[in-house]
Design a protein around this nucleic acid. Sequence first.
RNA 1: GGUCGCGUGGCCGAGUGGUUAGGCAAGGGUCUGCAAAACCCUGUACCCCGGUUCAAUUCCGGGCGCGACCUCCA
Length: 471
Amino acid sequence: MLTFYNTLTKQKDVFTSINPGKVGMYTCGPTVYNYIHIGNLRAYSNADVIRRYLTYRGYEVRMIKNITDVGHLTDDDVAQGDSGDDKMVKAAAKEKKTPQEIARFYEEYAFATQEKMNILPAHYNPRATEHIPHMIRLIETLLAKGHAYEKNGNVFFDVASFDRYGTLSGNTVEKLAIGARLEDPHPDKRNQWDFALWLKAPKNHLMKWDAPWSVGYPGWHIECSAMSVDYLGPTFDIHTGGEDNIFPHHEAEIAQSESANGVPFAHFWLHTRHLQVDGAKMSKSKGNMYTLEDITDRGFDPMDLRMLFLLSHYRSQMNFTWDALAQAQKNRHTLLGALERLAQSSTGGTTLDITAERTNFDNAMDDDLNTPLAITVLLRLATAINTHTATTSLANADEVRTFFTKALTALGIHTEAHADPIPDDILAIAAARDAARAAKDFTTSDALRDDLLAKGYTVTDSADGTKVSKK
RNA sequence: GGUCGCGUGGCCGAGUGGUUAGGCAAGGGUCUGCAAAACCCUGUACCCCGGUUCAAUUCCGGGCGCGACCUCCA
């Protein structure tokens, strides 16, 4: 039985979909005003595993992932280029780029990065800026139903009007009142925990739209409520995001959507815990906000990072270290090595019974996506495959390979060792080494091997001669 | 101050009221021209202090440590 830990109920719930065989899923996507980092990638990879495993289980999944491209740069930000060390803002200042152009730049970066991570593209990536009229209609509905109020061109959600507020995060109004921090709430708010639906834009605000209340811009939370209903309907199956989204963002989404639509919002809420780097929170000041390029620049494959994500449970805080990444890389190579042996195994021989491990894999994944345990099952299976193929051929190699491939696909690990083919010059060196070895000229063959290693290829001897693979 | 999560061997990381995953690294071996890869063997851990229990790493309480969120733009 497939179970997910549901933040809403604080327990593992058996998963059932609203429509038999179909799942609607919404993931809070990137804010395209900066480069997405490995913390974002962990959350997106996890959402992808949820989707992939549901697919593995036979569901048809419809995945929506928004693009938050409503920027809040002001003329001054752009003119001075002083928003921290944001290169794009500085570039915008110099090149007179618009916020839209900047957003597209980061959006493209986000897409390209996710593709490298083998994260399946969503069926739709709705942009917030293209759904402003939808948000305005939603705010009008909330006003009409008495869940929101307007003052001086600003519109706020009246938290007191929604009695389930706090169900997701535990931050009920009562508890918020007890633990309230003394800050200056917006002067137009009735209660400090009310949140903005629409804000009147200051004169120098670059992105703003006409609305019945003011020329302004939407609140942070309203976009997801507006876009999810557009693409998935008022009630859908799964909503995911990073743990930082639980409050206030997701709490606010529930309040807005359920108040407006009068029906339950998402059934399942899955949140990925944060990633730490070397035991500390990622931050710009610490210089540990890694992007995928930081990983690949050190010679790692994006799939190594993906494997590292899989090696810890998505609901536990993960600590990124280079050592752990190297371990993940070894594990991935082990799995791919076994897969390769399967591909080369001739027919005949004896059968490897994989029934038990197949069940173990499914059980691990069914249990709230216990990917570390699932990987363990595959590693154990890899050893069985290696042992088996070392002595005899595998009668059911196809069956084993089909399962192994299916399992790795469900986890989002490429089953090909490398997308890029081995270059001809490298193959030529390998051939030369074979010739030298055949002539028992080991001095030359060892030199050629060193050459290959220096060029970033590992060298393995096999019955078919020198085999090279990247890194 | 409020809400919540976590603390497992050199490292990563599952899990469990008693039979003590798995991997990486390490040491030993098989194989190999030498390596690599692969395989085999070795290695008994659960922050501290109380409590419950025949038995706790696992449950309860306290402490210490780490981390997350606490609303207006990420």
